[in-house]
Computed example of a mutant assay.
Amino acid sequence: MTTLPPDVHQTLTQLLDSAGEALERGEFETARESVETAAAVTENKVPPGETKARLQHGYRELEPLLADEPVVAGEYLRLLSETVENCPVG
């Protein structure tokens, strides 16, 4: 599994948490913005490998679900958060 730099781990955790909280409040545009920022951080800061590929896939699948299927989007966010949480930091 990919090792994430501490600042990248922290940033992704915060962004995904913020997206989840916004989604729960029904603030779909705010959630989308947090997901887009997390996707950009992943693209630019996460080393190539399985973790990066999983995260990128999750962001692509999540995007169209944010407003139309908030329950499913919440599950995607949970899984994305778990993926980040389970990455070694170093």
Rank of each mutant, 00 (worst) to 15 (best):
T37C: 01
S81Y: 08
V46L: 01
G58K: 07
T11V: 05
V89F: 00
L23C: 05
A53D: 15
E50F: 06
G74E: 14
L80H: 10
Q10E: 15
R78S: 12
A38F: 07
R25T: 03
G26Y: 08
V8H: 05
V41F: 02
T42H: 06
A39N: 15
N44G: 13
G90P: 01
R25V: 04
V84D: 05
L16Q: 09
F28W: 07
E50R: 11
R60E: 15
E63T: 07
V89N: 05
T13Q: 06
A53S: 14
Y59E: 03
Y76E: 09
V71Y: 01
L55M: 06
L55S: 12
L79C: 05
R60I: 01
S81E: 02
P88K: 09
V35L: 08
C87F: 03
A19Q: 08
P70G: 03
V46H: 08
T37V: 13
L55I: 07
E85L: 08
V84A: 10
R54D: 07
D68K: 14
T11C: 02
A67E: 15
Q56T: 12
Q14D: 13
L77N: 03
L62H: 13
G20W: 10
R54W: 00
L66E: 09
P47W: 08
T30F: 04
L66T: 10
V71Q: 14
A31P: 00
E82P: 00
V71C: 01
Q56E: 15
G74V: 10
R60W: 04
A53Q: 14
G49K: 10
E24W: 07
P48L: 06
A31C: 13
C87D: 10
L62S: 10
H57T: 13
V35G: 04
Q10R: 13
P88L: 09
E33G: 02
A73C: 07
P47I: 02
H9K: 12
P88V: 03
L4P: 01
E24R: 15
T42P: 02
S81W: 05
A40W: 07
P70T: 09
K52S: 05
G58R: 11
P48K: 06
D7L: 03
T37S: 12
E33A: 07
E24G: 11
P64G: 06
C87P: 00
T37N: 07
